[in-house]
Structure formats: C-alpha cells, structure tokens
C-alpha cells in the first residue's frame, strides 16, 4: 500500500525552515564583506574581532559561574523533589507537585518580574547571586520532571533485592539508586545547564552591577554591535550546542542499553 507523501514533504520543509537561517548565519560569519547579502571572500577577521572583545569573555565567565552553580543546586533539589513525588501519595505531594509543575508553564517575563519585585521588597541587592537564585528556581522543575520520568521506568525490585540482602537505607540510596539513576539525573542537569546558559528574559530583570551574562551580551550586541561579529559568536555557540546535544544523546542511549 502506498503511503502519503505529505509527512515526508512537511518534514523536509520544516528542516529547511530550521536550518536555512542557521546555515546563512554560519556562512556569513566567514564572509569578508560586512553586508550579509554579498560574498566578499573567505575571512576569519570577525572571529579575531570577537576574540578581542573583552566584554564577551567577561560575560562568558559570568554565564559559566551561574550555569555551573545553578545546575548543581537544582540537580540536588530537583532529584529530591522527584523522589518525594514518586514515592508518596498524599495531599502534601499534590501541593508539592503543583508547586514544582507551575514554574514550567509560567511565562519567563512573569517569573522575572515577580522575582524583581521580591528582591526590591526585601531589599536584596541585584547581583550575580540574585541571578543564581532565579536560575535555580526555574531549573528545579525541569530536573524534577526529567528524573521523575526516569523513576517511572525504574525497576524497584532492585531496591527490594538490596534490602533483602541487608543493605541499609543509606547503602540502598548511594549504592543502588543513585548510580542507576545517574543518567537520568545527568540528563536533567544537562537540561538545567542549557536552560541557564540560554536564559535572557529572567536574567534581564534580575541582573545587577557587573553581572552581564552571555545572552544579555548577545542582546546588546544585536542592538549595537557589529552584525558579523555576532555571526561569529553564534557559529561558535552552535558548535558547542551540537556537541552538547550529541553528548546528551549518548547519555540517553546508555540508559536504554543498560
């Protein structure tokens, strides 16, 4: 029986739609001409300009500090939350679930604005630290959801077996549960890491002195900077993204084969 061709064509159109702007951006990053619509020959000068831009390096450092610390904290909090949600059925967990789930669906601008109001009201100075607090807040929910999904596929008879063999709760958690769930927790962490690196809107609201992050820097470069330099920066970030996606795919595969 002949299948419809529509899905194939739609997929091709979507992929073209996804990648056309990206490809043009990458090509232009090597374009000697300043103007995107003419090809002026191959050149690396925009990359050189990028390397000389110390604001970018500074922003990158801030982004790294925040992404690493927010990822670690949200991994711990999110994993605990997932355990609780999976293990218990109670009114407390209903409330807990709502509390963990709602941040996923609240638009960024609302979260940014409400956090800003909170910091103003309790007179906390805006700084890298407030960005860290904000990022953990939205990352917890994502980590919890990813780990929760893994827990549902998890075969708890292993835990029973360990118990039967006389393992203490601590031994069960550190010796059995965590290692087996590690790919799931890491996948959650990776998601938190990318979300943190990527966040613009919330950070924009709660950023203080000297806490410009990479997305804020990119935004300001889109507005003021030289477009080809942004092309160069984008190309590098795309390469990093590619590696990250590949890594996380590997993690997922490991999980399914183990």
């Amino acid at each position: 029986m002949k299948r419809s061709r529509i899905p194939l064509y739609t997929t091709l159109v979507c992929l073209l739609f996804f990648y056309l702007p990206i490809i043009i951006l990458i090509v232009n990053s090597f374009n000697k001409s300043r103007f995107g619509s003419v090809w002026g020959g191959f050149s690396l000068r925009w990359y050189q300009k990028l390397m000389e831009n110390r604001d970018v390096w500074f922003a990158l450092k801030n982004t790294a500090i925040i992404a690493v610390s927010a990822t670690i904290v949200s991994m711990v909090l999110g994993t605990l939350a997932a355990f609780a949600l999976h293990r218990y059925r109670s009114r407390l967990q209903n409330a807990h679930y709502t509390l963990v789930y709602t941040p996923l669906v609240v638009p960024d601008i609302l979260m940014g604005m409400s956090l800003l109001l909170l910091f103003v009201q309790v007179k906390v100075q805006l700084s890298l630290f407030t960005i860290f607090l904000a990022h953990v807040t939205f990352c917890i929910s994502y980590v919890a959801m990813v780990v929760l999904a893994r827990l549902q596929d998890f075969d708890f008879s292993v835990v029973e077996a360990a118990r039967d063999l006389g393992a203490s709760t601590r031994q069960v958690v550190t010796g059995v549960l965590l290692p087996l769930l590690a790919p799931g927790i890491l996948a959650g962490g990776l998601l938190a890491f990318t979300l943190s690196i990527d966040d613009f809107v919330i950070t924009f609201f709660v950023a203080g002195p000297g806490s410009t992050t990479l997305p804020i820097q990119i935004y300001s470069m889109i507005k003021h900077g030289s477009p080809p330099v942004i092309n160069a920066l984008s190309t590098i970030l795309l390469a990093v993204t590619f590696v990250m996606v590949w890594l996380s795919q590997r993690l997922t595969e490991e999980k399914t084969t183990s």
Binding site: V124, Q125, L126, G208, P209
Partner: peptide, 10 residues
C-alpha cells in the same frame, strides 16, 4: 528603574 530596583553597587 534598575537603581530603584536595588541594583546597588555601581
């Protein structure tokens, strides 16, 4: 707005 919002430290 930023200064009012507590972006002290400049």
């Amino acid at each position: 707005a930023k200064l009012k919002a507590g972006a002290g430290g400049y």
